[in-house]
Design a binder for these strands. Structure first.
Length: 505
RNA sequence: GUCCCCGUCGUCCAGCGGUUAGGACACCGCCCUUUCACGGCGGUAACACGGGUUCGAAUCCCGUCGGGGACGCCA
């Protein structure tokens, strides 16, 4: 049995969506995929939908949704339908659609394309271990698929917690068309019986995304490449419901410098970081547009007729992207998110600003009243003339703060131990809520566990953050400076020390 | 490990069977300049490898190698 794709007829009005998950800071990848979806819709007179995929209640972060809205608006992307603006196919928050998913799971249960599974997390875990040990691909063994109706009824009567799994055909394969790559085939022996409905009653991405994309009349699914391997499950689901397939466009993944999938351990990924560090949204959007190569470079004739500088081919606005971006041009190699080039591009945008606009940009970010007002109380008692303001607050306004070893290395500690401890501080702070009490508590716990005195512990962090052993209060400084920039400073410190250590070898 | 995707300068892109393989960032040099930056000019630097197909391959096909992703009651 082989499933064939049938593409949506081109007569349907184009509708695309971006579906971020509110699990933390808004991600550059979200802006990247959002931009692409936005361009795709606008070029075709279509609609761009924002859907919040908040079905993982364990990773849910309450403040995240608003940050996602703000970040997308900051880069200049607006959506036609979404949780905040509504629309004809709402609600647009998946947590508000759980009834819909349950109904649809029932449809699959009824037509035998899904089954209930009563296996516990522990059982699954040990099965996975066994498979790994036997060098088998980790897959669900299909135990509950073979349950008799009587056994299922008994389990249900006993109120046993369970999930609903997709019943993937044992034989055959599924082929789907990727609009950028052509046909892709997966043998069903390589497609797992994916959980569709979790035991807490929430759907997994796979069910929710298929149901919502259909109900919301999405015609083109433009998402990251990491989804290719689960697309056969989605195709199977569309078929199980008897629904028409959308078109799939899998975009190459943004990469760290080492080519791995972009991640916060290796690269700043929070849009909040870029905003607070003084990147201009136009530059960010331009840079994301450069990734993947969908923009044609100007021809020689254009360069001559429009008197373009050769570098102008890399500089373009959202309006120009709308006009010229061509999805068929996208190159499939994963582009490295190169901060060096982003910085250059941002510089180009800064230089183009009128003096008034440049001043305004400063006053909206690094020199905003809010920022200075937050800093002022930290140093009021510590200066004697207003002219000394900058002496103690420079680190709040600097990008590169790299203290020498004489400043950050405690007398009784070795280089290696100290760098290792700073890495622990980073991990601890990453997980911390950003308020003084939380930061202080978690840091002290770390210090106790690792036998670092409070003084050594806090002084190290102070040195890394401020570049000095004399500074305004640490907790308050961290909070005013902001989580994303503080963590970035710590990461850059570690990176620099690692490089220096390697050079010495 | 299994499956899938990908493969042009260090990085981002151009190239679609015939080019001295082009541009941008970065780097280096020169010019401008009281400094730095900006700007201008120039330079170093790539078709992963091996087989085909072809009069001719960076371009088409196959294999190898390399990189990446997925393999969760995460998205």
């Amino acid at each position: 049995m082989t499933s064939e794709t049938t593409s949506a007829p081109d007569s349907r009005p184009i509708r695309v969506r971006i579906a971020p998950s509110p699990t933390g800071d808004p991600h550059v990848g979200t802006a990247y995929i959002g931009l692409l979806n936005y361009i795709f819709a606008k070029q075709r007179g279509g609609q761009f939908v924002l859907r919040i995929e908040d079905t993982d209640r364990t990773r849910f972060v309450a403040s995240s949704e608003q940050m996602i809205f703000d970040a997308l608006k900051w880069v200049g992307l607006t959506w036609d339908e979404g949780p905040d603006v509504g629309g004809p196919y709402g609600p647009y928050r998946q947590s508000e659609r759980t009834g819909i998913y349950r109904e649809h799971a029932d449809i699959l249960l009824a037509n035998n394309t899904a089954y209930r599974c009563f296996c516990t997390a522990e059982e699954l875990e040990s099965a996975r271990e066994r498979q790994k040990a036997a060098r088998q691909p980790p897959r669900y063994d299909g135990h509950c698929r073979r349950l008799t109706p009587e056994q299922v009824a008994a389990n249900l009567a006993a109120n046993k917690p369970h999930v609903v799994r997709l019943s993937v055909p044992l034989e055959g394969s599924t082929t789907f068309r990727d609009e950028l790559r052509g046909d892709i085939t997966f043998d069903h022996t390589n497609v797992d019986d994916q959980v569709l409905l979790k035991s807490d009653g929430y759907p997994t991405y796979h069910l929710a995304n298929v149901v919502d994309d259909h109900l919301m009349r999405i015609t083109d699914v433009i998402r990251a490449e990491e989804w290719i391997s689960s697309t056969p499950k989605h195709v199977l689901l569309y078929n199980a419901f008897g629904w028409e397939l959308p078109k799939f466009w899998h975009m190459p993944l943004l990469r760290n410098v080492d080519k791995s999938k972009i991640s916060k351990r290796k690269n700043p990924v929070s849009l909040v970081y870029y905003r607070e560090s003084g990147y201009l949204p136009e530059a960010m959007l331009n840079f994301l547009g450069l990734m993947g190569g969908g923009m044609a470079q100007p021809t020689e004739e254009e360069i001559v007729s429009k008197h373009l500088n050769t570098k102008e081919g890399d500089i373009f606005s959202l309006a120009e992207m709308l006009e010229k971006y061509d999805f068929k041009r996208i190159s499939l190699g994963g582009p490295v998110f190169d901060l060096v080039k982003l910085k250059w591009l941002n510089g180009e945008y800064i230089r183009k600003l009128s003096p008034d606009a440049f001043f305004a940009a400063l006053r909206h970010t690094i020199l905003s009243d809010d920022y200075i007002q937050a800093i002022a109380p930290l140093i009021q008692a510590r200066i004697d003339t207003l002219g000394q303001f900058g002496d103690m607050t420079g680190f709040f306004f600097s990008d590169n703060v790299l203290p020498p070893e004489t400043v950050w290395l405690p007398k009784k500690r070795t280089f290696e131990d100290t760098v290792a401890f700073a890495a622990e501080q980073l991990a601890t702070l990453e997980a911390a809520a950003w308020d003084a009490a939380s930061i202080e508590t978690t840091l002290k716990e770390l210090g106790e566990a690792k036998q670092w005195s409070v003084k050594e512990n806090f002084m190290l962090l102070r040195a890394i953050l401020t570049g000095s052993t004399t500074s305004p209060p640490l907790m308050e400084s961290l909070i005013v400076f902001g989580k994303s920039r503080s963590l970035d400073r710590l990461r850059r410190f570690l990176e620099t020390q690692k490089k220096l250590a390697n050079q010495r070898k």
